[in-house]
Every structure is written in C-alpha cells, then in structure tokens.
Simulated scan of single mutants.
Amino acid sequence: MTGGQVGQVGQVGQIVVDEPLPLGAGGRGAAEAVRFLRDCQSRAVAVRWVPDRDALPFDTGLLHHLPPPVSWGGSGSSGEPAAWRSRYAYGLLYHRRGPDFVTVMDRRDPAASARFTLERPALLAAFLAVQEPTALDALDAAHRAAVSLLADERLVLVTQGWAVALPPRLRRWPVPCTSV
C-alpha cells in the first residue's frame, strides 16, 4: 500500500497496520488506504488500524461498511470510532459481477437500502476503473461524469482529485442469496 506500511499478520485472518492510515489529507493516500481496507473486507480479513487524524476531509459514514479503526489517530476525543464500530457489519455494502454488469447492494442505511445494477457501458467501465485509486484527470469526460454519478450514490469516494470504488467484491457470502 502506498503511503502506509502493512505490519505483521497478528493471527490467521488478521492484519495489524503499523502506522496510521493516511486518510486525513485526502487525495491519493486516502484513496489507497480505502482500497486497502476494502480489499481486506473483500477477503473477510480483520484489520487493526488507526487513521492519521481525528478529522477526515470526507463523510466517514461512507466507510462504515469497512473494518472500523481501533482508535482515532489524534487526540482520540472524537466519538467517531465508537459510532463506526456500532454501525459496522460485514456485508453492508458489496458488489457482484456478472457478464457485462455489476450489481451493488447498499445496506449502510437500513432505512434506505438500495440495489444498483450497473450495465450502461460508461458507468460500468468507470466503476471497474476506480477499483484501483484513479486520478480524475486520468479519466475521459464520460468516465468523469459516470464517477460523479457513482459518488452521488455514495458508491465511490472522491477526495482531492482521486476516486476509488467503495463496495468490496465479497468472497465470503454473509447474506442470504435472495438479498442480491
């Protein structure tokens, strides 16, 4: 991971991150950190981590489907880690891929659960492109517009000119098959 070092495996299925994840400054470092947490979630790997700052430059509610921090990086005065832990559950947000489409299930807000099917070529291509942190300037106009739509639906994090998809592709199935 760029901008942070992954520590040792503390036990089978757990990663301990030695340094705070660089979420506080936004940009590429934050996008890489989110991708790292998303990929751990995808593989159902527990992560022990802290962010680099108390305040993040984006709505942390976007991330409540990812493993919560064990504490906050700065003074620890924020109640955010406890709120994150109380809202977190495996499988709150995920995607599945089919031929020429992606289905996304978003249950982060129980009152407004949503299912999206991404099948329009530009939308699908943009979603797949931002599986890796991507500079918005590297995208053409159609893909930037698609990323903007995905960000409006809270499926992509855009921070200081960088974008990364939020829903993990789950490899362990936690929910009934009728939920997709």
Results as ranks from 00 to 15, higher is better:
R43I: 08
R43P: 01
W49Y: 01
W49E: 00
V50N: 01
V50Y: 00
D52V: 01
D54I: 13
L56F: 01
F58T: 03
F58Q: 10
T60Y: 10
H64F: 11
H64S: 03
H65A: 15
L66R: 05
L66P: 08
L66G: 04
L66V: 08
P69Y: 01
V70P: 01
V70Q: 09
W72K: 03
W72Y: 10
S75H: 09
G76Q: 13
G76A: 11
S77W: 10
S78Q: 09
S78H: 04
G79C: 09
A82V: 15
A83Y: 08
R85T: 14
S86T: 15
Y88I: 03
A89K: 09
L93Q: 12
R97A: 10
R97Q: 08
G98N: 08
D100Y: 08
F101A: 07
F101M: 15
V102L: 04
M105G: 04
D106E: 05
R108W: 07
D109I: 02
D109N: 09
A111Y: 03
A112M: 07
A112Q: 06
A114C: 01
F116Q: 00
F116M: 02
T117M: 15
E119Q: 14
E119H: 13
L124M: 06
A125P: 01
A126T: 00
A129R: 10
A129K: 11
Q131V: 06
P133M: 05
P133I: 07
A135D: 10
L136K: 05
L136V: 07
D137P: 00
A138S: 15
L139F: 02
L139T: 00
L139I: 06
A141Y: 08
R144W: 02
R144M: 05
A145K: 12
V147E: 03
L149Y: 11
L150G: 02
A151C: 06
D152N: 02
V158C: 10
G161R: 04
A163C: 10
A163H: 10
V164A: 06
A165Q: 05
P167I: 08
P168G: 05
P174E: 04
S179C: 14
S179H: 15
S179N: 10
